[in-house]
Amino acid sequence: MIHPEDFELLRRIVKSRSGLTLSPDKAYLLENRLMAVARKWGMNEIEGLAATVRGAPNEELLREITEAMTTNETLFFRDQSPFDQLEKVVLPRLLEARKNTRHIRIWSAGCSSGQEPYSISMVIKQLGAALNDWRVDILATDISRAMLDKARAGLYTQFEVQRGLPIAMLMKYFSQAGDKWELDPGIRAMVNFDEFNLLNDPTPLGRFDVVFCRNVLIYLDQPTKTRVLENICNLMPDDGVLYMGGAETVMGVTEKFQPVNEYRGMYEIAKRAAAGYGTASQNYASNA
């Protein structure tokens, strides 16, 4: 059993580096996940790990501790409807609104092993000729280097390609590589992966017309959620669109975004409300 003071130390490291909030009932989880890190660093117990952190905190070790605590659960076309909306509502509107610049930028924030940004590229690929001569940038970021490496490799297990991915998409965009499935290089080339910590200022990443930040904020505390969402808002044009996870809400977190009544999971910028996806701010109630 982990010592309470060791738990507190490690919890604080994870929290300050990633925003991840670990309540005392997560002690077992922390212990399980960090045992692998401890062993890798030649220690047999969490106690040794904590002592090392106290004595000579090594940047690489602190990073691995943090990464080990992130949740990387993801699947292709998770919840389906955001990707249907992207194809049928959001991109057609952007095609009209951006016809002068012919440039669209999409950010997958907290992309894990890449299923979300690659689902976005598949949607864009399906639009085909409508996007000829357009530049569509997809930036996918995550705090975990291990996840980014996996995402860049574009190799998925049989289990992973059967979660959310329709068989027609598997046939079209994947090839077999041993016991894994490899995503088409053309689809992979549409996404740029970069390491980014959502606690940092995202301004250098540029402007984004669409931001997917789904099932990421659920692990953060309220003030951090607010800060992340308001930072995202600052990167978006008036008609920008944000997607959050099915169980997430902006209620009590920020007033900068409001849910779009007609489209589950979709949020528009509240004050400016220029997107015209929804109608009015009274949409809150029906989405709650």
Partner: peptide
């Protein structure tokens, strides 16, 4: 892939590769 293609051309709507679990069936 060749078996998947054969099944889909024969009129199958979806394809599950064993082993499966409840989540895959549901998906």
């Amino acid at each position: 892939l060749s078996h998947i293609q054969e099944a889909i051309s024969a009129g199958a709507n979806e394809y599950i590769m064993k082993p499966f679990d409840s989540e895959i069936i549901q998906s």
